[in-house]
Simulated assay, not measured.
Amino acid sequence: MSASLLEIVDLGDGEIVLQPADEGSEPLLTIRFSEASQRHMMDNCLEVAKVMIQAGIEAVALLADDEEQGFETGSYTEASRTLH
């Protein structure tokens, strides 16, 4: 994927998208909050979405770093898995 400017857009209906800043581009990621979760977060959905996106980017960077160092992502044993 080529480097481009990305923007986070709150569509106002509980849906937040990450998309290229280029007009007409399709969203890369969509986060949809239910009405109940919107009420619970008290209008902080955009901030929560930003943290979720940042966590995803960091996770991908860590996985890419592991792969560069020769770790095989499929080589973990059952005992090393953590269920969340």
Rank of each mutant, 00 (worst) to 15 (best):
G74Q: 08
A21H: 09
D13L: 03
D66S: 11
S37P: 00
L28W: 05
E47Q: 08
S37M: 07
L62A: 13
A36R: 05
G24T: 11
Y76H: 09
E47W: 01
V60P: 01
H40A: 05
T82H: 12
E72Q: 10
E47D: 13
R39D: 03
D13W: 04
E68T: 04
D66R: 10
A61I: 07
L46N: 00
V17N: 03
T82M: 14
T73G: 14
M1L: 14
S34V: 03
I57R: 15
L5E: 11
S2Y: 08
E26R: 15
A3F: 11
D13S: 04
L6W: 01
D10C: 01
V9Q: 05
E72R: 08
V51D: 15
L46W: 00
T82S: 15
E58L: 14
A21P: 02
D65Y: 10
T82I: 15
V17I: 14
E58G: 13
M1Y: 07
V51M: 11
G14V: 01
A61L: 13
S4Q: 13
V60K: 09
T82G: 14
L5T: 05
L46G: 00
G70Y: 02
Q69G: 07
T82Q: 14
E68L: 09
E68P: 01
N44L: 01
M1E: 12
F71E: 07
S25F: 10
L18S: 06
T82D: 12
V48D: 04
D65L: 06
G14K: 01
D13E: 03
R81H: 13
L28F: 08
G70N: 05
T77D: 14
V17S: 04
A3G: 08
V9R: 07
T73R: 15
S75G: 15
F71A: 10
L63G: 13
D22V: 14
S75R: 03
F33K: 00
L5S: 08
T73C: 11
G70C: 05
A21F: 11
A61F: 07
R32Q: 10
D66K: 12
H84M: 13
Q19G: 03
D66L: 14
A49F: 01
T30Y: 06
M52N: 06
E72W: 01
E72N: 10
T30P: 12
L63P: 01
V51Q: 15
D43Y: 04
V51H: 11
M41I: 06
L29H: 05
D66C: 09
L83M: 11
V17H: 09
D13N: 10
Q38R: 08
E67N: 05
E67V: 04
T73L: 15
G12Y: 00
P20I: 12
G56L: 12
E35I: 03
H40R: 07
S4L: 04
M52R: 14
E68S: 04
L6V: 02
I31C: 05
S75H: 06
M41K: 02
V60W: 06
A64P: 02
A3V: 12
L62F: 08
E47K: 03
E72A: 13
L29C: 11
L83N: 09
D66A: 11
V9I: 04
A36P: 03
P27E: 11
A21L: 10
Q19F: 04
M41Q: 05
E23I: 14
Q38M: 12
Q38V: 02
D13M: 04
M41H: 05
N44A: 00
G56N: 06
L6D: 02
A21T: 07
Q69M: 12
V9F: 03
M41W: 09
P20E: 12
L5C: 07
G24V: 10
E78K: 11
L29G: 04
